[in-house]
Every structure is written in C-alpha cells, then in structure tokens.
C-alpha cells in the first residue's frame, strides 16, 4: 500500500454572499448576520500516491473550491489539509501569461510561476515548444496576437513539463482541439508515479485518465469509487 499524499479532514468552506457596499457595512454594524453559502461541507478524503482522481459534479457544486484549497489559493473555514510533495496548481492554463511579452519570455514567466527554475526551463524549452506544436518564428510575437487555442497549447505544454508530484487540473482541455487533447491525455496517462486531480465535464476524458472518481454535489462527497461505477451512477442521476 502506498502512502497518502493528500489527507483532508473535516474540510468546510463558507463564502459570504452579496456585495460589500454601504448597506453591507451598516448591516454589519447592526450585527445582522450576512448570508453565507456553504461551498464545501465536511469533506474527508485520502488520496494515495500515484492515484489519478477525477472529480465530477454540477456547476457550483464546489469542485473548484476544493482544488483551490488544496493549492493554497484559498484557506479553509474549518478543517485541515495535509499535502505531501510539490503541488502544481494549475487552475487555468494561461494564468501566468502576460500579453505584452513574447512566447519565449512567457514560457519563462509561466514556468517560474508554476515552480520551475530558470535552468530547468532553459533545459526543457525545446521540448516545450515541440510539444505545443507552435512554430519557432511565431514565438517572437507578443502573446496578445496569439489565438486563444495557441495560448492554451503553450500554457499546457509548460504544465506538461513540470516535475511536480501532484498535478491539479481544472477543466483545461475543454478549449483545445481534438489532436492536442489526445496528445495531452496520452502524455498524462503515461506518467505513473504522479498524482492527478482532474476536474472535467468531459466524461470521456475522465474515463480515459482516472482510476478513481469522486462525485461532489452541494459541497458534499456523494460517491467515491472506481471510475466506471461512478460514471454509470452519474449518468443515471442525470437521466432522472
């Protein structure tokens, strides 16, 4: 049995609803409780090393919030998360990009934001560009003149070359073309010893990539089993 890399105990996350304006301020002075939304409700999870986990659920069910807390972007209202290893927190393929810089500079910027060192990027830059399938001569143009598909390709190619232990991917292959999607999926599934948390509404991707699947609804883990069982259950649930 391999060790746990992520341990989640009694995780709860609340959000305050409404706008922070004058009315909110006076309500607070009058000690009226502002409305809260419980995004995650008492979640317990253990994730072992090397597991590929798919997370499914409706919009607004708390999938992304869970990932954000594991990435340390947000902090839990209650509960503890223990994470062992380097986390590549990638909730958006192009989050670190800057529009005015050219392709090369953006690979360095994006890579360092995701935790790569300069030498490491220098070493891998040819692989990254080849993986993205973009032409070398185009990479000298500022990023704002790239198409959105090309941006995703470039961002994802950097991500594919990270050497983190835990990969957290949130709905990222949705925009790219079939060709690149295949390339990424086969690349991810080849790496055996890395842990993957994968949120997607494309059930076929989850079927292909993940061996375990978690169904979240209204902030609670409803089901947690191997992928085929969960996907069957989810489809039944939706067809009702």
């Amino acid at each position: 049995m391999s060790e746990n890399v992520i341990k989640i105990k009694n995780l709860t996350k609340e959000f305050t609803l409404g706008k922070f304006d004058t009315r909110h301020f006076f309500n607070k002075i009058a000690q009226k409780q502002s409305q809260k939304k419980i995004a995650l409700n008492n979640i317990n999870l253990d994730i072992k090393k090397g597991e590929k986990i798919g997370i499914i659920g409706k919009n607004g069910s708390g999938k992304s919030t869970l990932l954000k807390i594991i990435c340390r972007i947000m902090y839990p209202t209650n509960g503890i998360i223990e994470v062992k290893g380097k986390v590549a927190s990638i909730l958006e393929a192009k989050a670190g990009f800057h529009n005015e810089l050219n392709g090369y500079e953006n690979i360095y910027l994006h890579g360092s934001i995701l935790g790569m060192r300069k030498n490491e990027i220098k070493h891998k830059i040819d692989n990254i560009i080849n993986f993205s399938g973009l032409k070398y001569k185009n990479l000298h143009t500022p990023l704002k003149r790239f198409s959105s598909g090309e941006l995703i390709r470039l961002g994802f190619s950097v991500i594919m070359h990270l050497d983190s232990d835990i990969f957290i991917l949130d709905e990222m292959l949705a925009v790219s073309d079939k060709d690149f999607e295949r390339k990424c999926i086969s690349h991810i599934s080849r790496v055996k010893d890395k842990t993957l948390l994968f949120v997607s509404h494309q059930l076929h991707q989850i079927k292909e990539l993940c061996n375990r699947c978690i169904l979240i609804d209204e902030g609670k883990v409803i089901a947690d089993d191997n992928t085929n069982n969960i996907l069957d259950y989810y489809e039944k649930l939706n067809s009702k």
Binding site: Y75, P76, T77, G79, V83, K86, V87
Partner: peptide, 12 residues
C-alpha cells in the same frame, strides 16, 4: 528529490 509536507489549516 525535495519532498516537503504542508499543512493547510487557516493558520498563517
């Protein structure tokens, strides 16, 4: 390889 343990419990 570097491996480290992180606790996320809202205490900074």
């Amino acid at each position: 390889m570097k491996s480290y343990y992180k606790n996320i419990d809202g205490n900074i």
